[in-house]
Write a protein that binds this DNA or RNA. Structure first.
Lengths: 340, 340
DNA sequence: TCATTTTAGAAAAACGTTTAACTACTATAA
DNA sequence: TTATAGTAGTTAAACGTTTTTCTAAAATGA
């Protein structure tokens, strides 16, 4: 049914080594011999057995991508960019969802190592990544972190220009005369703190004092989009709109935006007349609301591509060759829509 | 660095076969010997090399999922259900996007076969799947089709109750007194034709004659969500609203809905007063619009889980054991929101 | 007691490649 | 002519498991 290199060799009247050389182009072979081999290959419809090759070469041509939340469109886009880049180099991507739970993330990494992936790309659920040092200690494969700065583990790192993105967004608000601007961040992690810095810088530049009441963080456990609609951020929004006279909200990420916008929708506030709204992360549905929502667009496709290239680069390097880890920032841009 | 079974055997003073027996529980071993082996395993922090095991056992523990359009939330949900089910059985999922292009789909299947996946789950871009018969001829792995009925290839099949779902949706419209109801289907495939049948049945039941002008299909090439906003369906909607006095639209799927709703939003029609709207496929953003959009919810998570179980079932069977292919229907349910 | 069966483990084959080491032959140069 | 280098191919080792086959000792039964 499935033919092996042995049968090809036999049919072509050569040794199996020669077949391998022809197929891989790893050694000179007389044209005549090559033809005999290729004819046999075609006749038998031979394809190499990747299982055998993998064992011999000690690689699997598999890359694992551990995603903190696969329900988040942002990571889906990254995955697509990554996959495109890796597929071109003959690698396949194993995608696996941590559902924002650290234990699942650790389990996922273990499983991927058990599948002998050649490298890992990880969007960690939390910053504590010390477990990776342990798991990779006697299994030194490249690991590239994305979206969040890990603690307890050094590696290549791909991040957005969070501070700058937030700064530009909030600046767009101050320029329109807003002074009471809320900052709402779903998760309090390094990424969100960078965005908070951008918020702070824009306010300072406009000589607006920081009001701690206007800065809100959500619960750490984010759930599905449906749950988020009436989650912590929803209630924070309700409080801000009822008890504080804010005129604009800047949402630190797309997940928080769900709760915030759900609340806004339920009030009778007019956007943008009564309340201006901007969110980090551009997502498709932001254009389907009335009015459409202004957003700081990241470039997840680009992040995925860059991650892919970095993986390939690392894989080409000799493992003990010295290598300095890279930190790459992917730029954001503000897309202005009707909500401000 | 990475220890092999040989070293474990040596440390435990047994043969490598015994180590294998202990680890896999495939043969009786004296408790004392077992302890020696396990101690050695722990001391060396040994983990089996899956590459070697795969070669020997002739399996990869990999399942390929070829998705017609990974940008479509529907398939993402399926993927998550599938992954959950397979992971529990020790399988990993390789996800790959065909971007609605047949050539890419074929390429994807080839690549997955080259990666030696143990089985395939395919959401085909078009119904013509005769290429599979060829590709799987000398590589007989199970393949399970999902969402669309393949032609030229027999296999297990998982579909939604399309006719019934559409019927209930359109019935909800006729019950509210609508008589001029448009049916808009993005792609003209077996799935969409089933939905059209549901539409037809509901109209006949309400004794409303079918008006061919009210039935519209889109271009076959669907693109990204952003492109769809002003694609064929957008123009069909514009025509229907301008030149035909329809009072309700039933959209055959989520992709078409993007263009349709974009157009509705740009007119000054009041929904649902001037125009009622229902779509097949429930998606998160349908609740963020004003009003929220009524939808026929499929159960993609369930579809993924069922697909996973089917894969595992097939994998357990002896390949030449006779097996009758299954066709499984996953039910839909109507979620009524403000748009009707 | 002696033949038979059971048990625990070892030895070795097998999975299908890649690749290092080797061989025989041919071409080149002195 | 003879040493040397290059060419084209073969042989065999290696990758790390699982599993079949084999062996020796112990247990069982008559």
């Amino acid at each position: 049914m499935k033919s092996s290199i042995k049968e090809v060799a036999h049919l072509a009247q050569v040794s199996i080594a020669t077949v391998s050389y022809v197929l891989n182009g790893t050694k000179r072979v007389r044209p005549e011999t090559e033809k005999r081999v290729m004819d046999a290959v075609r006749k038998l419809n031979y394809q190499v057995n990747p299982l055998a090759r993998n064992l011999r070469k000690g690689e699997s041509k598999l890359i694992g991508f551990v995603v903190s939340d696969f329900g988040n469109y942002f990571f889906q886009e990254i995955a697509m960019g990554l996959e495109a880049q890796l597929a071109a180099a003959g690698y396949s991507l194993i995608l696996i969802d941590s559902k924002e739970q650290k234990e699942i993330e650790i389990e996922n990494v273990k499983n991927l190592i058990a599948q002998a992936v050649d490298a890992l790309v990880i969007a960690p659920t939390t910053e504590d990544c010390s477990y990776l040092s342990l798991l990779l200690a006697n299994n030194p494969i490249p690991a590239i972190m994305i979206d969040r700065r890990p603690e307890g583990f050094v590696s290549d790192l791909i991040l957005a220009t969070n501070e700058q993105g937030a700064y530009e967004a909030v600046k767009a608000l101050t320029e329109r005369g807003h002074r009471n601007i809320a900052f709402m961040g779903e998760k309090r992690d390094s990424t969100m703190l960078e965005r908070l810095q951008g918020y702070t810088r824009a306010l300072e530049e406009a000589q607006i004092p920081i009001n701690a009441n206007y800065i809100r963080f959500g619960s750490h456990s984010s759930g599905s989009q449906r749950i988020l609609k009436h989650g912590t951020m929803y209630h924070h929004t309700f409080d801000l709109l009822s008890n504080h006279n804010i005129t604009a909200i800047f949402s630190g990420n797309n997940m928080g935006t769900i709760g915030i916008f759900s609340c806004i929708k339920e009030t009778n506030l007019k956007v943008p007349e009564d309340l201006a709204f901007i969110t980090f992360d551009d997502e498709f549905w932001l254009t389907m609301t009335s009015p459409a929502i202004t957003a700081v667009a990241q470039n997840p496709d680009e992040m995925g591509k860059v991650a892919g290239n970095l993986v390939l680069e690392r894989l080409r390097k000799n493992p003990d060759e010295e290598y300095s880890y890279q930190e790459i920032r992917i730029s954001t841009h503000l897309i202005i829509r009707g909500s401000i």
